[in-house]
Design a protein around this nucleic acid. Sequence first.
DNA 1: AAGGACATTTCAGTATATGAAACATAGTGG
DNA 2: CCACTATGTTTCATATACTGAAATGTCCTT
Lengths: 235, 235
Amino acid sequence: MTVTRGRSASGTGSTLHVSRSAERVLSLLETVVVGGAVGLTEAASETGIPVSTALRHLRVLTGRGYLVRDDLGRYSVGPSFVRIALAAFQSGPYARLTAAAQPALHRLAEVTEESAYLAVRDGSEAVYIATVESRRAIRHVGWVGKSVPIEGTAVGEALATAASRPGQAPVPFFNTGAIEPDVTAVVASVHGMRGVVGAISVLGPAERMVGDRLDFTAEAVVDAAAKTSLALSPR
Amino acid sequence: MTVTRGRSASGTGSTLHVSRSAERVLSLLETVVVGGAVGLTEAASETGIPVSTALRHLRVLTGRGYLVRDDLGRYSVGPSFVRIALAAFQSGPYARLTAAAQPALHRLAEVTEESAYLAVRDGSEAVYIATVESRRAIRHVGWVGKSVPIEGTAVGEALATAASRPGQAPVPFFNTGAIEPDVTAVVASVHGMRGVVGAISVLGPAERMVGDRLDFTAEAVVDAAAKTSLALSPR
DNA sequence: AAGGACATTTCAGTATATGAAACATAGTGG
DNA sequence: CCACTATGTTTCATATACTGAAATGTCCTT
């Protein structure tokens, strides 16, 4: 009857102690935040953490106000997390970038009549952190907070490119259907004091973005990126 | 300064095992996110965690991309955290609230010519989660993400008040100088399906908000709150 | 060169997190 | 009505994974 559960933890007797519970708490937080209202069992299975352990961790998070439980016992984002999240935009390193890009994004969305996005790099991915939407009925929406691979995308190219010389006009990057079919992206890099710090994209339906229209869009994107770079580090 | 002195659950030889490292990692995350660029020693002393331990935890956070280190070794918000933060606004329980309040906040800021805010409750505090700023030169700004006590503030009263009957007109709450001298607040509760879910405030310089102007503002705030409640749970 | 401030590594001890299993509590359907 | 499943909660013996003082390394200042 003594069910000797496999020894596990074999392999290299690693001497590196990297907080396991910390990792797990963060996994759970992430799972709940992106997943909306999730129950204990779901959160546990999603993260691969035993339920009893997951429960304990979730309690830490709710205790801090990072998560809240609804009347069905499911977990959702709590007010404390929202507070932190908001603070991240005000004091974080992206505050300046976002503020600097805002006017350019507005003008870009206006003149191109497509949705304009601002993206930053996150390891091997790119994350869209701000947008100004097109006002047309058919438009690209909802990619703020979304992350896409660096590899094989136009944003990725723009973010991975080596910093060009200051004053040198940026190059536009193009792609169609890398993430979603029928979506065309036109992107240019934003340069800070130390290399590429972000990218400005225009995303729209592929059938609309062709010929002269595409050329015009590319010009506008390059211009917006240049203006943003200038706003970041005026000389 | 709001360093929650860890310890917790002392006294009786508690058999409750509440993840210590988890608590600490979250403290550190919070400290860095609100504090901007902080060094190891600073983060450690701020949270009361020994430096070597703090370093280990901060490594977990940077490893996950929640934090990044600048070239001076200081920690700041990372792209992964920004991604999560953005997701919190899209899928979180406050997404509906914020969306429902947006038009009302705009109109409110326009007609009162003062900054309009949306706040939710966080334990014994209130957190401002959205704003539309006044367009006047002297205006109230920068309170998004800020938290104030429930006790002794107008927002607090509005959030702590018992749910009024549906259809019943909300009551305005007033306060001057509770948090900052010379700032007057006019607030009304937003009602959801189960009680008070938020509050709408107008904040402005005390000397401007008097007499007829104040009455008018109160009316506008009450109206905005009612409209938001209606948008949340139409009948 | 000496000193200070800060980041990093080491290491032994044990506090502390872990997870299987038992228990509790709905909700479901036959 | 009761068995049955799904989900949340508590317990507790175990050793793992975390802790933190001190030593070391690195950079900057005087």
